[in-house]
């Protein structure tokens, strides 16, 4: 069953066409990763699904309701989006920022209920941010900051979470930590996850479904085993990849590649 469905969507960014007549179904309770080279439109697709960008034509359905017919505040209770480089005042403290995630649920915007506070507590626990809850944002490392933003998205308590390159600019350990938090959200709390990832191996290891995009269209879609193959990687990224199966967890791994572009 699909929880999100994109039907014949066309989006432009300023004057440039990013994608045209694009169709995509996102299955409920599944982790879907979108991969593709720079400028293929994957971020734009994510923003269109998250109603940050309005499609020029075509429709997006959340469950069975068309996105433009739902009040934006109501959408925010079902769908959270973490942008690529989120910005907040550096003097803001961690817990304060996370509490902003409760905004769509607040009845009285100046007061958090005990339920709100419990959910904020929960999202800090899941994201391991409790230990620096009182710090100001400028005192955090890049990895800590990313987890705080993730916590804010969690505080929205949505069944769908969209993430735009959640691991960019993080070191290896933090990349893995963020992805494991996401994995847990899906496994334990049945969140539907759609994320844009740069790293093919991360996508292979942490997703159930992979969508490969190139030049504004979806080239292939399927399980990691179906998608992470020499043929498809060549078609999408113009690389000649060597792929094997990781004996540790059974997911395909690209362990080396050469460019097919003329030097």
């Amino acid at each position: 069953m699909s929880i999100l469905s994109v039907q014949k969507a066309t989006t432009r960014y300023e004057q440039n066409l990013v994608f045209q007549d694009l169709d995509l179904d996102i299955k409920k309770g599944v982790v879907t990763s979108i991969i593709g080279p720079n400028g293929c439109g994957k971020s734009t697709l994510l923003k269109t699904i998250g109603r940050i960008l309005k499609p020029k034509s075509g429709k997006i359905y959340l469950q069975d309701q068309e996105l433009t017919t739902i009040p934006t505040k109501k959408i925010a209770k079902h769908l959270a989006l973490l942008p690529q480089n989120p910005i907040a005042p550096s003097e803001l403290n961690v817990e304060e920022l996370i509490s902003y995630g409760r905004y769509p649920h607040l009845k009285n915007i100046n007061k958090l209920t005990s339920e709100d506070k419990d959910i904020i507590e929960w999202s800090m626990e899941i994201t391991h941010t409790l230990s620096f809850r009182d710090r100001q944002l400028h005192n955090l490392s890049g990895g800590q900051r990313q987890k705080v933003w993730l916590a804010m998205a969690l505080a929205q308590k949505t069944e769908i979470i969209l993430l735009d390159e959640p691991t960019t600019f993080l070191d290896l350990a933090h990349q893995l930590e963020v992805l494991q938090i996401i994995e847990r959200l899906n496994a334990d709390f049945h969140c539907t996850i759609v994320m844009v990832l740069h790293d093919i191996n991360h996508a292979a290891r942490f997703s159930h479904e992979i969508v490969a995009m190139k030049k504004g269209s979806i080239v292939a879609k399927g399980t990691p085993a179906q998608l992470i193959t020499t043929e498809i990687l060549e078609q999408v990224f113009q690389i000649r990849a060597r792929v094997m199966t990781d004996p540790h967890n059974g997911s395909p791994v690209c362990y080396g590649y050469e460019s097919t572009l003329p030097v």
């Binding site: 940050i52 934006t72 209770k77 959270a80 989006l81």
Partner: peptide, 21 residues
């Protein structure tokens, strides 16, 4: 709307994501 002014210090994508018109 004081609280909204606090939210306005985030960038536009985050604001829209939170359901602010």
């Amino acid at each position: 709307k004081a609280y909204l002014l606090d939210l306005f210090q985030l960038e536009e994508t985050s604001l829209k994501n939170l359901g602010v018109s």
